[in-house]
Write a protein that binds this DNA or RNA. Structure first.
Length: 480
RNA sequence: GGGGUUGUAAGCUAGCUUGGUAGACUGCCAGCUUCGGGAGCUGGACGCCUGAGUUCAAAUCUCAGCAACCCCA
């Protein structure tokens, strides 16, 4: 690669998708791409870590149909309003008009909640916690980008129903903890949870909490969000249970949407460098690649590589021998581009000495390892790698937050640093929307909301837009 | 909704002004050769967005369509 990630992120991103064979963008429908094997293998690993964690937290897997009858789709008013502009509709079967158009799910609340109302009768049916790993479709009007915003994308959506508000609120907290545990600890994607302002909530939610991360050019990208739906869907969908007093009560609901597709975009962007991808050890489709060198003694060398492969596989690692006809230099570059964490070079020298050259993708260093110590070394190097990746991601992230108390300071911070700019702001209730619009108009910046993890209140500060008393510190920035 | 730019092989692109055999590089195929950081040689396959018009002759000029990208609302 000869494009700098730091200076020309956008081009770097497009280039890496091509070079590392992550997606083929030539499929001739706008906003739809072919997800290529290397990307799919990585995302499958991401999925399974997330699914494991969800199931540990008692979410059960389910597969709902991809189509939603128009009637169901329109049951909750705010929700319809929020989504109707970007729904794909199926209107025909063959030549015949369908009696009732079918929505291709843009998200599955209205599919699932219709069934929830049948499944939930009494307290014994609660809590109900389900998730599905699926594609959804949205006819996006903003410009699409592979893995970041597409008209088709791959995600997990989890939907829960409880008998009390408290349990639903606890679920929101649990969703946040899962985000921390998987997206940050495993995928090395740093984030901050914000409570979205009133005008930017998920359509139909009481509260929306969204994990915002950053792209290397300083723009904000929304990662999972978790929503307290309250009883907003339960009432129109008639999801009720009989309580102790024999009364029918609507359930309390939450939903959470970790979009693996978009996390993959962040994973590429945050962890990659000018040589290509760097994939965390647990997620790499191949964790180690063996490059055989000098095939004059092919038999001797391939016997050794097979031996090593077996030993490493027995230890539970995923390993690939690349014995294709390319030259070693080509293979070095290609597997580095694809982000394989470790490479072992095996030539005659290694076979004779029993000591291998092991190259580390994350810091580019090469070390010598004895055959007998190989497995153990990989083990601790994998841990070292994860630590180094998290450190690097944190450094990038923490550098991108600043504070501004005037419009001028805001403009300067946005221009020089990008990322999140903390500002005193009048109101996150509907009366604040005017100031938000003004900020958008003038700087193309969005109010992301108040931090959830840290409570901050401005004292005696003025809103940087309207000059009225600031009730909140909010964070603003340019989003993707 | 308005304006602009661009469509040449799988990718990147030259040729278009001034109409006359479409060329390079990457990739692909075959053979030889090479292999410790993107090897070399020889040969080969694949292309002018669609349609109409002008012309003896159109990748090139004109018009329409389609598509992509950019800017403005």
């Amino acid at each position: 690669m000869n494009i700098s990630k730091k200076e020309k992120f956008s081009e770097w991103f497009t280039e890496i998708i091509k070079e590392a064979e992550l997606g083929d963008l030539r499929y001739n429908v706008k906003g739809f791409i072919v997800n290529m094997p290397w990307a799919v293998m990585t995302m499958k690993k991401m999925y399974s870590l997330y699914e494991e964690e969800l199931e540990k937290n008692d979410h059960l897997p389910v597969w709902f149909p991809a189509v939603i009858p128009k009637e169901n789709f329109e049951i909750e008013k705010e929700h319809v309003e929020g989504f109707k502009a970007e729904v794909f509709w199926i209107t025909k079967g063959g030549d015949k008009e369908l009696e009732e158009p079918l929505a291709l799910r843009p998200t599955s609340e209205t599919a699932m909640y219709k069934m929830f109302s049948l499944w939930i009768q009494g307290k014994t049916d609660l809590p109900l916690k389900m998730y599905q790993s699926t594609q959804v479709w949205r006819h996006e009007t903003k410009s699409t980008r592979p893995f970041m915003r597409g008209r088709e994308f791959h995600w997990i959506e989890s939907h829960c129903a409880f008998s009390t508000r408290k349990e639903a609120e606890d679920q929101v907290l649990q969703d946040m903890r899962m985000t921390e545990k998987i997206m940050y600890q495993e995928f090395c994607i740093p984030f901050i949870f914000f409570e979205r302002p009133e005008w930017d909530k998920f359509p139909g939610a009481i509260h929306t909490y969204a994990a915002d991360s950053l792209v290397p050019d300083g723009r904000i990208i929304q990662q999972p969000s978790t929503h307290l739906l309250g009883q907003n869907f339960a009432k129109p969908f008639n999801i009720t249970f009989l309580d102790e007093s024999g009364k029918r009560e609507p359930v309390w609901q939450t939903c959470y949407g970790p979009a693996i597709w978009r996390m993959f975009a962040s994973l590429i962007s945050i962890n990659g460098d000018d040589r290509g991808l760097i994939i965390p050890f647990k997620l790499a489709p191949y964790q180690i690649v063996i490059i055989p060198i000098n095939p004059k003694n092919l038999d001797k060398i391939s016997k050794k590589t097979e031996e090593i492969k077996k030993a490493v596989e027995n230890a539970g690692f995923r390993i690939k021998i690349d014995s294709s006809a390319k030259t070693p230099g080509f293979k070095f570059n290609q597997w580095e581009m694809k982000g394989v964490p470790f490479r072992i070079e095996i030539g005659e020298k290694e076979v004779d000495s029993g000591e291998f050259t092991l190259a580390k993708r994350f810091d580019g260093k090469k070390i010598k390892v004895k055959e007998s110590e190989l497995v153990g070394t990989i083990d601790w190097l994998a841990a070292e790698m994860q630590e180094a990746m998290l450190k690097k991601a944190d450094e990038f992230f923490s550098d991108k937050t600043s504070t501004a108390e005037t419009i001028e300071e805001f403009e300067k911070a946005l221009k020089e640093k990008g990322g999140f700019v903390r500002i005193p702001f009048c109101s996150v209730e509907m009366e604040g929307v005017k100031c938000s619009d003004a900020l958008k108009e003038k700087f193309h910046a969005d109010i992301r909301g108040e931090r959830f993890d840290v409570k901050e209140k401005p004292k005696g500060k003025k809103c940087i837009i309207c000059g009225k008393e600031a009730k909140h510190y909010v964070y603003a920035g340019r989003q993707y």
